[in-house]
Design a protein around this nucleic acid. Structure first.
Lengths: 162, 162
DNA sequence: CGAAGATTTCAAGTATTTCTGAAATGACCA
DNA sequence: TGGTCATTTCAGAAATACTTGAAATCTTCG
């Protein structure tokens, strides 16, 4: 699956394998199917666990760990959005806040005020995006699904080309 | 600005410089401010033009090209979403279609059918996401802004913790 | 047309990320 | 408790991605 998902190629391959196969596979299965090293398989699986799109499964009478991928595409999508919001927006907002706090000191002239205005426009916007995103990404509630219904409704009601 | 935007660090820096400064700057300004090579500056600016978040400005009586960043945060966001949909979802969907076309040949057994079902679930989902995304990313129409109003309304009407 | 100045391209170098494989750690059972 | 098998870690190797700088190309003006 696309390598440009904000995750490494191998991680994407491992997820694709688990999702498509539908089964739970153990580390050795993954290594063999994808021809990757044990360490790589282990790290990729752990990362997928952290993303919440893969879960560990124990088989009775077997000491190995097995892994299976979440099968609901909505859950997968939510997990991906959640993780990417966290990784991409949060650090950016943190930096913007830091800058804002630092800026309230010296002799402020006209152009500094204009700069601040632009930074604030960006900050406010990203805070709004984060707030909306968090709402739909939260594990409980109608969340993203409801959002999509609304968006689809808008799409349908707009008719053809204007 | 965050380096994890799906674009390179330098490109992000160039955009941040142009956005924050508010002015139009020429290649040499960018090189000097960010201490980067001419080639790098040129390539980054071109990429930003491709993304549609920076535009070329000509000053009469001056042969140099000047560049200025889009100032409307909504437009910036739309451009980023548009480009990322194109780069991340489109290739993925293309692969899925290719697989689907290839799969309709040999002796199909039970597990092959199950695999196809999963691939189709994913394909359908991504097509839906693309369709909704395209609608809101399209240059004309209320687009994303309307979407956000709707999403905000939902957010507000949900009240506090259930 | 030709010179001057600006931009783009690209091979080579540098930096960053990812992968490997073996050693260390952990888990279970007799 | 010690042995066996599975998992995790991590330093170095390999693969990617980014940057540079100079040559090639393009544009404008005299």
């Amino acid at each position: 699956m696309g390598s440009a998902w904000g995750i490494s190629r191998t991680m994407a391959e491992v997820h694709a394998l688990l999702y498509v196969s539908g089964d739970s596979l153990c580390t050795d299965d993954v290594m063999e199917r994808l021809q990757i090293s044990r360490g790589n398989a282990s790290m990729s699986l752990r990362a997928l666990l952290d993303w919440g799109v893969v879960s560990r499964v124990h088989r009775r009478g077997d000491r190995k760990d097995y892994f299976s991928a979440e099968q609901d595409v909505w859950s997968i999508f939510r997990a991906i959005v959640r993780e990417r919001l966290k990784r991409e927006l949060d650090p950016l907002l943190a930096s913007l806040h830091e800058i804002r706090d630092r800026e309230n000191e010296p002799g402020r002239d006209e152009s500094a005020a204009a700069i601040d205005a632009r930074l604030e426009a960006m900050t406010d916007f990203l805070e709004m995006v984060t707030a909306v995103g968090d709402r739909f990404v939260s594990p409980s509630g109608p969340g993203l699904r409801l959002a999509a219904s609304l968006l689809s409704a808008v799409e349908d009601s707009e008719g053809g080309d204007p």
